[in-house]
């Protein structure tokens, strides 16, 4: 569904942020990308989504037209907009944009998405009146309304409470079971792996581990990479 081969990238032309990275992502799978700060997780996601172009290597398929790309990949950003003069419902329905602009009909079940993300009760409220966590849920709803086969999330749990982090992972797992390819960048090594199908560990721009979450989470190499105590 999405494949990258020998990806390398640097922002300044000298320091390699990503080095010879090859991975493939299949539909119906829930992937988690982990790594210490500066390991290249977010940069890797930007290369996957086509926001950045690799210095070397390829990402396939490559969508040149932003509208076509938006019909295949939806992104939930780490940074939530500070202020939007719109209601919760209006922000979520912005996800219909690529389909409306292309003259197609979106098949996203917006009401069901509002229910699942516990947004139904305040969908007429102003986005600016929400807390950080609630805003993050609205941005997630917008990405789900976009209704794409691939869903990428860049640290989506950073503003969410522990309870909703689990809810989020449960929803993402369900979406992957329905056939979507879900790729999430996260720092949550404790609860997120329970829901994942595959766990990917990056360190210093290189792929150091990839596989079943139970296997990766219990590997001694992981403690070394994250400098974790033995109790983990």
């Amino acid at each position: 569904m999405l494949e990258c081969l020998a990806l390398s990238f640097s922002y300044d032309g000298k320091t390699k942020v990503l080095n010879d990275l090859s991975l493939s992502f299949e539909k119906g799978q829930f992937y988690g990308i982990f790594g210490p700060n500066g390991s290249g997780k977010s940069t890797f996601l930007k290369l996957l989504t086509g926001e950045l172009k690799a210095d070397a290597g390829t990402v396939t398929p490559l969508w040149c037209d932003p509208l076509e790309r938006a019909q295949h990949i939806a992104l939930v950003e780490q940074q939530i907009p500070g202020s939007l003069p719109l209601t919760v419902e209006e922000v979520a329905l912005l996800g219909n944009y690529p389909w409306v602009r292309a003259g197609k009909v979106s098949h996203a079940a917006a009401e069901q998405i509002f229910e699942e993300l516990e947004l139904s009760s305040f969908k007429k409220r102003s986005f600016n009146a929400l807390s950080g966590g609630e805003r993050q849920r609205v941005m997630l709803a917008r990405a789900l309304v976009q209704n794409t086969p691939i869903l990428c999330l860049d640290e989506p749990g950073s503003s969410l409470d522990v309870g909703f982090q689990h809810t989020l992972c449960r929803i993402l797992k369900k979406l992957s079971r329905e056939g979507k390819c879900v790729i999430m960048v996260s720092h949550d090594l404790f609860s997120a792996p329970t829901y994942l199908d595959r766990m990917i560990i990056l360190d210093k721009g290189k792929l150091v581990m990839e596989g079943n979450p139970d296997h990766v989470k219990n590997s001694p190499g992981l403690r070394r990479i994250f400098n974790l105590p033995e109790v983990f």
């Binding site: 989504t49 926001e51 932003p66 509208l67 790309r69 939806a74 992104l75 907009p81 939007l84 944009y97």
Partner: peptide, 20 residues
């Protein structure tokens, strides 16, 4: 619709298919 999408910021708009 394009003007509304711009409110999401450049990254959000670009990833939603806006030809910035």
């Amino acid at each position: 619709p394009d003007m509304d999408m711009l409110l999401l910021g450049d990254r959000g708009a670009l990833m939603s298919g806006v030809d910035l």
